[in-house]
Amino acid sequence: MIDRYMEALLLEARIQSAQVRGVGAEVSTLYLGGGTPTCLPKELLGSLVTETLRAFPVAHNAEITMEANPGTVDLGKLACLRDIGVTRLSMGIQSLEDSLLARLGRAHSAEDAIRAFHLARDAGFGNVNVDLIYGIPGQTRKDWEETLDLVVGLRPEHISAYGLMLEEGTPLWHKVKSGILLPCDEDLEINMYYSAKEKLNMTGYRHYEISNFALPGYECRHNIIYWRLEPYIGLGAGAHSYMNGERRSNLTDPEDYLRSIMSLGSAVAEREAFSKADQMSTVMILGLRMADGVGEEDFHRRFGIQMCDAFGNAIEKGVAQRLLEWDGGRLRLTRYGLMLSNEAMREFL
């Protein structure tokens, strides 16, 4: 299955690359993730990356990120990834408190996580992201701050901090639903968010997106493409693409995906054309996630219309509600608006 899936994936990559070549563009970022690619054996993983990169014209300074779970890496695998051109690792550490990791159903311990981080450094990775989760049932503010302190001590270049989303059907969801676990108090969760913001700001990290922090120059270039609604190609089952004003998503079932790619060369399940109005509102909704917000000039250059003419009411309302603010010629969320961003964003639809 894995071999056939990789074969389909690489076939899709080669077919899709025509779109990039057609416009004389280069791939500036590649992100391998969703699931745990690092659980693949070293050789397979290596050829996956190499072959994918070979399919596309790739910029020489491209950002190539691999998602890596702490329990699935060793020095050999990491060194191999580094050798074949992976420039950035994203590690799903989540917490450095064993009881909370267990509660999240993670297979690794805090010790595993720290060891994995050091292995990444040993393998030569100078750009590492650490994913963290707060608002876990039973987590105290002290737990959270301890994890933060330890992570800051490791000095990763990038930190993503997500409030826990209880996904329906997961074991944790069942426990909360049935009252075995108390969900995190909303005020506590908000306090955790702002305490992370303060602590990370103080230690040199810039809060550049709702859930993301980075040392200067280490913002994730790949994700910024999404937030600016620039073109991207998604490969594999369930992957999404955005090209030429059209959003596409692939079949989600791997078998279906595989069969469709092998017979048709494409596995698109859904297509959604984004009108100019859709593009404008999406640029606002996504752009406002970033600390830099959306620039009036950029907007005008892209759409030929002033942001204030397109979204006067939404902007006025958001500013009046103290959710939005102007910073020079850029519209952005206020500090208060970060956790209430949906309230402001929906007005742009």
């Binding site: 969703g34 997500y162 409030g163 989303m165 909303e186 005020d187 969760e189 908000i190 709702i210 859930s211 994700n223 999404y226 937030w227 609604l229 991207y232 998604g234 369930g238 992957a239 999404h240 693409s241 955005y242 959003r247 998503s249 959604e272 999406t282 996504l286 996630r289 970060l338 956790m339 209430l340 961003s341 949906n342 309230e343």
Partner: peptide, 16 residues
């Protein structure tokens, strides 16, 4: 008062 209404993660596949 509501204090939190935010989509924490929003990447390529989350736009729709």
């Amino acid at each position: 008062a509501i204090r939190k209404n935010v989509l924490q993660k929003c990447y390529g596949g989350d736009v729709s």
